[in-house]
Design a protein around this nucleic acid. Structure first.
Lengths: 114, 114
DNA sequence: TTGACGTATGCCGATATAGGTATATGATGT
DNA sequence: ACATCATATACCTATATCGGCATACGTCAA
């Protein structure tokens, strides 16, 4: 079995750095495919394919504007990712409470582990 | 070119559902490979491979405990993901300010887009 | 219709994956 | 050393990727 499709999940969609960069760019406002491609230093088909993935997971919307097709951010799909990682916030905030002793334990027990 | 390695990035590492489930399980405390494999309904080698990925990106630490090898959560690596997605929080919280008009615009302009 | 522009898709090659099975490695106890 | 248990790795198959190039598709203007 191969890795899950990039379109199966927002997690998979944003695993690609270029796609994350596209999303960041789109925070500034809508952009046409060619613009985005140029700003990210990739080919037009490349940008188009990435935008397709982002569109299929709902992170991006498009509208026609003359000959162009403007892509705009719809970041609501990122919320689950934010919340999921937020479920671990405790583990890096309170890392001096319970976690600290645990980490010390790890370090003492196996020195050349990581 | 293929997709980036799962070990290249925390984003890539957590793109896999089973790995996310492992992390969730480990919130309850350390666990041995066999335990995790059983709880997640996967084979021991399968769990071991996923744990290897998580270890290589630093989301998990291991320590020897007798014959067993206990894996523990080190969720600090999830913080960048949380913060990155947090950079888009504005876009789902204030979606009635600037974004709303924009989305309406999208809906009106292209009905059968998605 | 023709032309020009913008975008999407098809095909290809190379690569890294996830899952399974068998087996090697490591650690413990006798 | 040996047997036993726990874990990691090697090998395999099938698959989905990402990137590039060529080209089809869509849209607008004359």
């Amino acid at each position: 079995m191969a890795r899950a499709a990039t379109t199966s999940d927002v997690f998979n969609a944003i695993a690609e750095r270029q796609r994350r960069e596209i999303l960041v760019l789109l925070r500034a406002g809508e952009g046409a495919v060619t613009e985005l491609a140029e700003e990210l230093g990739m080919t037009q088909p490349g940008a188009s394919k990435h935008l397709r993935v982002l569109r299929e997971v709902g992170l991006v919307r498009d509208r026609k504007a003359g000959k162009q097709r403007l892509y705009g951010l719809d970041a609501r799909g990122l919320r689950p990712v934010h919340e999921w990682t937020g479920g671990f916030e405790w583990f890096w905030n309170e890392s001096f409470d319970r976690l600290d002793a645990y980490v010390q334990d790890l370090k003492g027990a196996s020195r050349g582990t990581g």
